[in-house]
Design a protein around this nucleic acid. Structure first.
Lengths: 308, 308
DNA sequence: CTGAAAGCGCTTACAG
DNA sequence: CTGAAAGCGCTTACAG
């Protein structure tokens, strides 16, 4: 009856429920889980080296918050697990295999990360926030290449002719895809690509921009594979005395809130990270109920501000 | 023996352990918890309205990451719970009372939040990332007033005479304390305070700065109670044609990474949020073992950049 | 429909 | 020191 049946007289029900409340009775979770084999908990695993791309990324809080909200409204508990070393990765595996959770939502951006495959092997439902190298893990993906192409086309339309790019770390799928989109857009026009490597941090964007100015002082536009690097690039351009957008136009990617507060305000590809996180949770909840394993692709769009 | 005793011959031990590995045996967590009454999990509760101060704050990811690392190395699991409504607050209470976790680390910035007191009532160990209105919850605290005083003294030393402040939402302890520190520093000098209200977001900083310029066009310095608002204030000053720091000096608070990338780079009070988070976890782990309930105060310092 | 019993998978005190 | 039994607090099939 405590579990909500309705076959007792309302008065009696009321009396018992009041007693329950007064005594502060709460069912013991461990005992319940033991027999039902359901935990009503979902692990959210963020796999990233300590110096990794997520460390200072607004992505982290956006994703974690969106995921928490969605899982909460589905009545699931969020068990957050950061896997930043081999040791903690095997800890995660053990925990998941140990039956603590009903499923796993995974954020593992590195292509070489062994965790997606390892988690898939546990047999528990796993959904990934992004494409992984494990074929059997259903995922949600942003259309990174299309977004990058959007950015470059916009620069071409603005009359830019020497368009460089600052990439993310190329062991990440999304960094490679954004580079591919940049290249594809340029290929159609016969222009050559000008590439500098970054790692998705502000500092790397600043450094890559210095590199680019040295390699090709006549460049007139830069597409940075994320906003943090674009912010770093803006600083270098200012220090080098280049005006934005008059001398050099800059486009970022992600449209984080800070993009609207740079000088000048940053044009950026809007990636709906909160929606992508929500979609991943829905995919996972579907899997737990035995639903579809089809990948989901999220669309994106260009937000034009003053830097182009 | 699976639990690590040493009273068997090493060869036999080896054979059994191999079998364990091959069969993929993992102890059932629910059964173990049921009998030991230890979960090896700790709830990290972030209590904040949906439009709350943490939403886009770098605080969120910094704190969550530092906490996760510290708890992981102590062998505890992190159960992240966001409490953004009364409904989810009582869900948190129930979960904690239900014996799912060994203790709670709490981030509840609003002075009127009923959750700290409610969690204390469960009898489980609770440690708070900041001072709360519940007297019986041990906490770690940043010395906010001292930090603000540091900022204002610095402005005075730079020869500024009309120093305004942009406050955080005054239902937060830290916002009030930073305002108190500002006032205390001015009081000593006989200068009057010039105050505009913000809510710790960039947008509110921009708006408050407009207000201040209208109220007192002759002001020559601003102390913003956090960096995000300082970033907003910088934008307004630029739009209004005021040079920073020549016409108006600006100091922020928190020293988030973005502070080094503003134009001009922002002078800020460094608050060691990662250390504060780590200290809170240590306080909690101590409480779980029956340790001290003494509050901990974290010191801070001024990082001087180009905006002053 | 109701109530007593079995059983989930562990740990731990206890008899041998 | 070892091994069998009790018991943690629930849920669920099953006998009455």
């Amino acid at each position: 009856m405590v579990n909500g049946e309705t076959t007792v007289a309302p008065e009696i029900r009321e009396v018992v429920m009041r007693a329950v409340r007064e005594l502060g009775y709460v069912p013991n979770a461990a005992a319940r889980n033991l027999v039902t084999r359901r935990t009503h908990a979902v692990a959210v695993v963020v796999s990233d080296p300590p110096q990794g791309v997520l460390s200072d990324d607004p992505l982290f809080s956006t994703v974690v918050r969106a995921v928490s909200r969605e899982l909460e409204s589905a009545g699931k508990q969020v068990v957050l697990m950061l896997a930043e070393s081999d040791r903690s990765r095997s800890r995660v595996e053990e925990y998941v295999a140990g039956g603590h959770v009903d499923g796993v939502m995974l954020v593992a951006l590195h292509g070489a990360d062994p965790l997606p495959a390892a988690l898939a092997r546990t047999g528990l439902p796993v959904a990934s926030f992004n494409r992984t190298s494990a074929q059997d893990v259903p995922y949600v993906e942003l259309d990174n290449a299309a977004g990058a192409t959007l950015a470059v086309r916009h620069l071409l339309e603005r009359g830019r002719r020497r368009i460089a790019t600052i990439t993310g770390p190329l062991d990440l799928f999304e960094a490679r895809e954004r580079l591919d989109g940049y290249r594809a857009a340029l290929r159609d026009t016969g222009r050559r690509s000008i590439v500098a490597l970054g790692d998705f941090t502000r500092a790397s964007g600043a450094e890559a921009m210095r590199q680019l100015l040295e390699d090709d002082p006549a460049l007139d536009a830069v597409f940075a594979a994320n906003d943090l690097m674009a912010i770093g690039a803006l600083r270098t351009l200012r220090q080098a005395g280049r005006r934005v957008p008059e001398d050099v136009a800059v486009v970022g990617f992600d449209d984080i809130e800070a993009a609207a507060y740079t000088v000048p305000a940053l044009t950026s590809v809007r990636s709906p990270m909160a929606d992508q996180a929500t979609a991943t949770v829905r995919l996972l909840l579907g899997l737990i109920e035995g639903g579809s394993r089809e990948p989901v692709v999220m669309p994106n769009a260009l937000v034009i501000r003053e830097s182009t």
